[in-house]
Design a protein around this nucleic acid. Structure first.
Lengths: 245, 245
DNA sequence: CGAACAGTTGATCAGGATCAACTCGAGTGG
DNA sequence: CCACTCGAGTTGATCCTGATCAACTGTTCG
């Protein structure tokens, strides 16, 4: 099961066999969480970092009056609460599906980062990519139309899932409701529904029963003004590797 | 002059004398740049990281058709292009005022991060705070009104400037045009003008000649729904320290 | 003196929000 | 087995925030 994080780390940097052993050791404990579980609670003082091994989740902030902004979607290999490395988290993380999660005590991570420069570098790159994704969302919310924004979100979700081998051809399970998409794009649920309809009418996507199908990649890219560069994905997407560790 | 970066790093972590010497050594070269200079060019393959020692600047992305989104404001002590640590930058940075900048070759930084865990930790925290600021901007653009968003931006700018000793009482130099604010908030210039007018009419701020004066902190905080926690500032703001290095 | 740019104002428009009702499964319990 | 509920999705009508267009002021600077 640590294979997933290893695969992700190896995307960022070449690991030595020794590095791999360290990663495997640290991921020995695995917790199960059901769908809709609150994996990270806003303001929780806990000091362990959680690594998502299987499943999907999302980061979000809910304002006092109930407005919610989704800050990012999480796929296997992502660290749920990187800020917890050195400070408190200021957002929540909720599971979209049943998840498998490995907890790592803060001190343990710090030791590893200090002792294994290659791993530290991989974590750094992870964090930098996360920041790049956040910037791209800011561009979308600030300067793109609702239509482009939703299209952009779907492009990104699909490519990130494909990168961890969770797609089958043009299909992938993307278990979010239209309201999730709305809260991610900064739109109302109603308008998101209409945007999805026009994306469907333009034969760009199908999206039902929490499954996303991309029907027309060039079309969707164009609608989204999408340039995948910021994701820093490897040219060749990883297959759903049966890494036996 | 390295005092500024030292002060910033010390906010995040306690440094040893040895750490300080390393920082001072690495900041030996200082470049001058005039206002409006393009300090970082989107896509530039250069591999040196730039540290802002004096002045103000902003990170931005300009879309093919000219729409611009400002992604963040930079104050002394900030690293202009952290992604360059391990990948390419995908945004530009432009000077708002004349700036002093120290370049650090990528390899040099990597060595330092590997050899000096305390410094590495400080850089990590810096990056995590930057990500937290980005998340707060997302919340604003997705879920706050134009009025709250602009107010929020001003709160944040003021506190960050105060934190590096660049305010005088309730005043600070914040050399942006209304269009800069608009591009940061994801608004049109005209509407930003009107929002600023109503902030002034409510006696919350004065903002002329590139100087921002906060007239009513509680009022501005309330208007912005502002909670400074995410900035992870020290309780006691740093004064403009005459650190003699 | 005249550009050139920042800021301001007014008029109009449109993208997306809001409110409300309705459909359609998928459970669930009687 | 059916009625009921509940959440998700859909649709229509209306409202409003903020965009756009255009003109004008004021200031700075060459």
């Amino acid at each position: 099961m640590p294979g997933r994080l290893l695969a992700v780390l190896e995307r960022y940097v070449t690991l030595t066999p020794e590095d791999r052993i360290v990663v495997e050791e640290v991921l020995c404990e695995v917790r199960q969480a059901p769908a809709d579980a609150e994996l990270v609670v806003d303001g929780d003082p806990s000091t362990e970092c959680l690594v998502l091994l299987e499943g999907q989740a999302f980061r979000h902030k809910t304002l006092p009056d109930g407005r919610r902004q989704i800050l990012g979607f999480l796929v296997p290999g992502d660290v749920l609460d990187l800020p917890r490395l050195f400070m408190g988290v200021d957002y929540g993380v909720t599971a979209l599906t049943a998840c498998q999660i490995a907890p790592i005590p803060r001190g343990r991570i710090e030791d590893i980062l200090a002792a294994h420069p290659r791993l530290a570098r991989a974590f750094w790159r992870m964090q930098l990519v996360e920041a790049a994704i956040q910037r791209e969302w800011m561009i979308g919310m600030g300067r793109r139309s609702a239509y482009a924004r939703v299209a952009h979100l779907l492009c990104e979700a699909f490519l990130r899932l494909r990168n961890v081998g969770m797609t089958h051809g043009a299909r992938c399970r993307f278990p979010v409701t239209q309201n999730h998409l709305a809260d991610a794009a900064g739109l109302s649920g109603v308008h998101t529904n209409r945007v999805l309809q026009s994306l469907r009418q333009n034969d760009l996507i199908a999206f039902r029963a929490r499954e996303l199908v991309v029907l027309d990649w060039p079309g969707l890219f164009a609608a989204a003004e999408f340039d995948p560069n910021y994701l820093h994905l490897p040219a060749e997407p990883l297959q759903r590797t049966k890494v036996t560790v």
